[in-house]
Simulated assay, not measured.
Amino acid sequence: MATGIATMAARIPASTWPSAARLRVFHRQVMKLSLSPRVVSLHSSASALSSPSTSRKLILYSKPGCCLCDGLKEKLQAAFLISGPDSLHDVELQIRDITSNPKWEKAYQYEIPVLAIVRSDGTEETLPRLSPRLGVELIRKKIAAALSQ
């Protein structure tokens, strides 16, 4: 069996393999993934170190099987990994399945994916819809700008 895996790996160009650093980051993200029924929270490495009261929070309203939701989740996860100015390392992302709550489903059933900022007073502010065509860097900049307001 090991020879079969080695043979398959030999067919994949080495240039497409993820770097060891990327695999470590991915592993850390997976290990920090905390699941509860139909609500998922993703914490970046810096947010785990900061206190909950000082961290910035986003909520993504989505539902299973929504390709737009899945695409935005992937881009958000990638945006959290980018360092530099306007870094989102201290942002906590909570993913809410609208099918688990009738109130969310009624409010967002035709609008998902919906991204909202949780302000310091606990209120949610819905962000304008992000185009599925936006790149990760532009999504990061738009979210950072919205969070700094």
Rank of each mutant, 00 (worst) to 15 (best):
residue 2 A to G: 14
residue 3 T to S: 11
residue 5 I to W: 09
residue 5 I to A: 14
residue 5 I to E: 10
residue 5 I to S: 13
residue 6 A to H: 07
residue 9 A to N: 15
residue 10 A to E: 11
residue 12 I to E: 05
residue 13 P to I: 01
residue 15 S to V: 07
residue 16 T to S: 06
residue 18 P to T: 00
residue 18 P to V: 02
residue 18 P to R: 02
residue 18 P to F: 02
residue 19 S to F: 06
residue 20 A to F: 07
residue 22 R to P: 13
residue 22 R to L: 01
residue 24 R to Q: 06
residue 25 V to F: 00
residue 26 F to I: 10
residue 27 H to L: 04
residue 27 H to Y: 02
residue 27 H to A: 12
residue 28 R to I: 03
residue 29 Q to V: 04
residue 30 V to I: 04
residue 30 V to F: 11
residue 31 M to D: 07
residue 32 K to L: 07
residue 33 L to F: 10
residue 33 L to S: 14
residue 37 P to S: 05
residue 38 R to A: 05
residue 39 V to N: 12
residue 40 V to R: 14
residue 40 V to N: 03
residue 41 S to K: 11
residue 41 S to F: 00
residue 42 L to A: 05
residue 43 H to S: 15
residue 43 H to T: 11
residue 44 S to C: 02
residue 44 S to G: 14
residue 44 S to K: 06
residue 44 S to E: 08
residue 45 S to V: 12
residue 45 S to C: 06
residue 47 S to H: 10
residue 49 L to C: 02
residue 49 L to S: 13
residue 50 S to T: 13
residue 50 S to R: 12
residue 55 S to M: 03
residue 55 S to H: 07
residue 56 R to Y: 04
residue 59 I to K: 11
residue 61 Y to F: 14
residue 62 S to N: 01
residue 63 K to D: 03
residue 63 K to R: 15
residue 66 C to S: 07
residue 67 C to W: 11
residue 67 C to G: 08
residue 67 C to Q: 14
residue 67 C to E: 12
residue 68 L to Y: 04
residue 69 C to R: 01
residue 69 C to V: 03
residue 69 C to Y: 02
residue 69 C to K: 01
residue 70 D to Q: 15
residue 71 G to I: 00
residue 73 K to C: 05
residue 74 E to M: 08
residue 75 K to C: 05
residue 75 K to L: 06
residue 77 Q to R: 13
residue 78 A to I: 08
residue 78 A to Q: 14
residue 79 A to V: 03
residue 79 A to R: 01
residue 81 L to D: 14
residue 81 L to M: 10
residue 82 I to S: 03
residue 85 P to K: 06
residue 86 D to T: 06
residue 86 D to Y: 12
residue 87 S to E: 06
residue 87 S to P: 08
residue 87 S to D: 11
residue 87 S to Y: 07
residue 90 D to E: 07
residue 92 E to V: 15
residue 92 E to A: 01
residue 96 R to D: 03
residue 96 R to Q: 09
residue 98 I to A: 00
residue 98 I to R: 05
residue 99 T to Q: 13
residue 101 N to G: 02
residue 101 N to L: 00
residue 102 P to N: 06
residue 103 K to L: 07
residue 104 W to K: 00
residue 105 E to A: 05
residue 106 K to Y: 00
residue 109 Q to L: 09
residue 109 Q to M: 08
residue 109 Q to R: 14
residue 110 Y to S: 04
residue 111 E to L: 00
residue 111 E to M: 03
residue 112 I to A: 01
residue 112 I to M: 04
residue 117 I to V: 15
residue 121 D to L: 03
residue 121 D to E: 09
residue 121 D to N: 11
residue 122 G to V: 06
residue 123 T to I: 07
residue 124 E to M: 10
residue 124 E to D: 03
residue 124 E to Q: 13
residue 125 E to G: 12
residue 125 E to D: 11
residue 126 T to G: 01
